[in-house]
Structures are given as C-alpha cells and as structure tokens.
C-alpha cells in the first residue's frame, strides 16, 4: 500500500512523451504543476482553479484530462503525453500544422490544451463532424478565436490524416 506523508516529498515516476522522468514532490502537488515545475515542461498551462478552462489538458494513459485536477501522485507510474510530445522528428503533427494553416490560435495560451483534446478526439473519431468537434472541445475555453478556426483546423487535420494515414 502506497503511503505518502503530508508536507513530505516522495518520488513520482511518470513516462512522459515516451520518456521516463522522476521527481520528488509533495502529495498535494497538482499534476499540472508537477509537469511545469518539477519536469520543466511549460507547454501545459494553468488558467483557472475550478477545473473549468482546460488549458492544462494532457493525455493520461491516452485519455485527455485536466491536469490541474489530478494529483501528481495519482499519475505515479502512468503514461502522460503533453503538447511537447506532439511533434515528431518528421515535423509538426497534422493538428499543429492545421492550427497554423487555419489561424486556429491567437494568444496561444489555450492552444496546448486544445491540441491535446483534439489529438484524442481524432484518434477515437477520425472523421468528426463540426458538431462533434464543438462538443469534444467544450471543456477547453478560448477567449480569442470564437472557436471558429479551431473547429476548422481540427476538421482540416482529420481530413489530412485520413488522406495520409502513414503519418498517423
């Protein structure tokens, strides 16, 4: 049985973007801060404290979750993927490219969360309709774009991924 004391740091091990990383942290550390501060990966953002905005979305065991509402210790020995893991040596992920091509971002703060949510969406539903996309990203707030071009980018990426399955 795993037991960690209040105010004491203990080891948390995660496989993040395919790489095993470890750091010492307190039980109360939220996963978002563990990723940002303990692991030094600042692509994952924090925009609220009520699990509303989704700027902190990461994939945990392949599932998009709000990492501000998961404890780092809960992620111990789990697989994580953050926006840092999207790009491969071959270049931008089709979603990254589509966000760029379609002006799917303005200030860029919500973008990593949007990318992670839509990565999971296209994996599970390769050909979503616009309505499905809108529902899928409804846990991610954006204040700049009015969502129009984000939706367009995700649909556009799905089409590209369908026509170039080798890249998926």
């Amino acid at each position: 049985m795993e037991h960690r004391n209040a105010n004491e740091s203990s080891l948390v091990t995660v496989v993040i973007n395919g790489e095993t990383r470890q750091a010492m942290t307190e039980p109360r550390t939220l996963l978002a801060y563990f990723i940002r501060e303990n692991l030094g990966m600042t692509g994952t953002h924090v925009g609220c404290d009520t699990t509303s905005c989704g700027a902190c979305t990461v994939l945990m065991d392949g599932v998009p979750v709000k990492s501000c509402t998961v404890l780092a210790v809960q992620a111990d020995h789990h697989a994580l993927m953050t926006v840092e893991g999207l790009e491969s040596i071959g270049g931008l992920h089709p979603l990254q490219q589509a966000f760029w091509d379609n002006h799917g971002l303005q200030c860029g703060f919500c973008t990593p969360g949007m990318l992670m949510t839509s990565t999971a969406l296209l994996r599970d539903h390769p050909e979503p309709t616009e309505t499905e996309v809108r529902h899928a990203i409804s846990g991610n707030l954006c204040r700049c774009t009015g969502y129009v071009n984000i939706v367009k980018a995700i649909v556009n990426a799905s089409q590209k991924m369908a026509s170039e399955p080798a890249e998926v």
Binding site: T42, D101, G108
Partner: peptide, 19 residues
Amino acid sequence: IKRKEDPRFIRRQGRYLDD
C-alpha cells in the same frame, strides 16, 4: 499570410509569464 508567431505557440515554445 500565415502567422509568424504561431510556430512557437503550437510547439509549446511560447514564453508566458508563469513559464
């Protein structure tokens, strides 16, 4: 014209204050 600032934002290289 596609935005020049976008590559850093979509590649997590934006540098916001808390970063």
